[in-house]
Simulated assay, not measured.
Amino acid sequence: MGRENESVNLSLLRARNHMDRRYAEPLDVQQLAALAYMTRAHFIREFKRVFGETPYRYLQRRRVERAMFLLRHGEASVTDVCMAVGFSSLGTFSRTFSEIVGGSPSAYREWAARERLVAPTSFAMRWSRPTDAAR
């Protein structure tokens, strides 16, 4: 890997780490591109090349992963979970959750309650990680 590629990758990691830390906040691509010292269009292209999905899709998946945890381990309503992970619309949250996980948030909560995995947390996290069929 050349120095230029390494520099691009580090810039993209800076932006992705920002997304990981602030997933529940409103984030815009222009702000993330600025963190990576790139134009908006170049940032989107490079992010997809390096991470395999667009920044927007990555952020959605990150939010859904967090929602899955809250639904498994909390008693908050689906609406409260939706707002806690950064979605502003329950409809968008439910649609995105269903696309990524394969079922509604309520159905996932019921499944998780029935299937309490008795395994180390690292295995349970891997088994329950969403697979995005749309990719």
Rank of each mutant, 00 (worst) to 15 (best):
G2M: 04
R3G: 14
R3D: 12
N5E: 14
S7D: 06
S7Y: 07
V8D: 06
N9V: 15
L13N: 07
R14H: 07
M19K: 06
R22M: 09
R22P: 02
Y23V: 02
Y23P: 00
E25P: 00
L27K: 07
V29L: 03
V29M: 00
V29S: 08
Q30S: 12
A34R: 06
A34M: 01
A34P: 03
A36F: 04
Y37T: 13
M38D: 06
T39R: 15
R40K: 04
A41C: 08
A41Y: 11
H42C: 06
R45Q: 12
R45I: 09
R45H: 14
E46F: 10
F47H: 08
K48V: 06
R49M: 10
T54I: 02
T54G: 05
P55Q: 06
Y56H: 13
Y56Q: 14
R57H: 13
R57C: 08
R57A: 12
Y58Q: 00
L59I: 04
Q60N: 10
Q60M: 07
R62K: 15
R66W: 06
L70H: 11
L70S: 05
R72G: 09
R72D: 11
H73D: 06
E75C: 03
A76H: 11
S77M: 03
V78W: 03
V81E: 09
C82H: 00
A84S: 15
V85A: 09
V85H: 13
G86T: 00
F87D: 03
F87P: 05
S88W: 05
S88R: 08
S88L: 02
S89L: 09
L90T: 10
L90M: 10
G91V: 12
G91W: 11
T92D: 08
T92Y: 09
S94W: 10
R95N: 14
T96R: 01
T96A: 03
S98H: 11
E99D: 15
E99L: 15
E99Y: 15
E99T: 15
I100P: 01
G102N: 11
G102K: 07
G102H: 13
G103T: 13
G103P: 02
Y108W: 14
W111S: 02
W111G: 02
A112F: 00
A112W: 03
A112Y: 04
A112G: 04
R114A: 11
L117Q: 13
V118P: 00
P120V: 03
P120I: 06
A124D: 07
W127L: 14
W127I: 12
S128H: 12
R129F: 14
R129W: 13
P130E: 00
D132E: 04
